[in-house]
């Protein structure tokens, strides 16, 4: 069968489709920030940025950047009417205290039971940096990962056990990838959806792991 990978924008749109009206969402640095561009105008979603803002708006027009108003990725942003600023301890209380509905993070590896590795690729020579990833991974009500399913070498990034240093244990609920959407459960991976043309069997071959079929009433809207 012939299948095509979701583009980064298609993947962002797929994630956005599952974010309900009224949700408080933290989008991680990098690819997850694209999700904001795809949230339907019929849904009002409150974006949280861990450096201290709720109700984050889009990037400012060129020339209107304010370097006192940046997101966690240190890019200039805007604040929507109704938005608020707060200090770091309050911001991470929102995260750790289970007040954030969904956080979307990138990943190097995710285990079948939802262990996440996204802060350190294991190179002992690298300078380590973790930021807010460990707080977000275990603090949000739901942690979703957005990533390519395979490395450039064709190895699955969904693994039985993470070999890279962990960010959090059993914290990922869903994996949105360029080829399939998967759920991590205590019993292993469960399929949510596949790109057109990709079969369940081919997906299992690519990740090298068993994937349970979706439940009869699909988990995704």
């Amino acid at each position: 069968m012939i299948y095509e990978r979701r583009t980064k924008d298609q993947l962002a749109a797929r994630v956005a489709r599952d974010i309900p009206d009224g949700a408080v969402v933290n989008l991680g640095i990098g690819q997850p920030t694209l999700v904001a561009n795809h949230i339907a105008s019929s849904r009002e979603v409150l974006l949280h940025s861990e450096n201290g803002m709720l109700g984050m708006g889009p990037a400012p027009h060129s020339g209107e950047e304010d370097y006192d108003l940046i997101n966690a990725g240190k890019q200039p942003v805007t604040l929507l009417p109704g938005g608020s600023y707060f200090a770091h301890a309050d911001s991470f209380a929102m995260i750790r205290g289970r007040h954030i509905d969904i956080c979307v993070l990138g990943a190097f590896q995710v285990s079948v039971t939802g262990d996440l590795a996204n802060w350190h690729a294991g190179d002992t020579n690298a300078i380590p940096a973790v930021g807010g990833a460990m707080d977000l991974a275990v603090g949000a009500k739901q942690t979703w990962v957005m990533m390519d399913l395979l490395t450039r070498q064709g190895n699955s990034k969904v693994v039985p056990v993470c070999t890279y240093p962990l960010t959090g244990v059993s914290c990922v609920k869903r994996i949105y990838s360029d080829l399939a959407t998967l759920e991590c459960t205590p019993g292993g991976l469960r399929l949510v959806d596949l790109v057109d043309g990709l079969t369940h069997a081919e997906l299992e071959r690519l990740v090298g792991l068993p994937v349970m079929p979706p439940p009869r009433s699909p988990a995704g809207p």
Binding site: A87, G132, G168
Partner: peptide, 26 residues
């Protein structure tokens, strides 16, 4: 971790001797 950093600083200011956080476990 960023949130642990903020909370460890807050704890110092608030007279807290130590605290348990889920962040970083494992």
């Amino acid at each position: 971790p960023q949130g642990t950093l903020a909370e460890r600083i807050r704890a110092a200011g608030a007279g807290i001797g130590a605290f348990y956080t889920p962040t970083g476990h494992g």
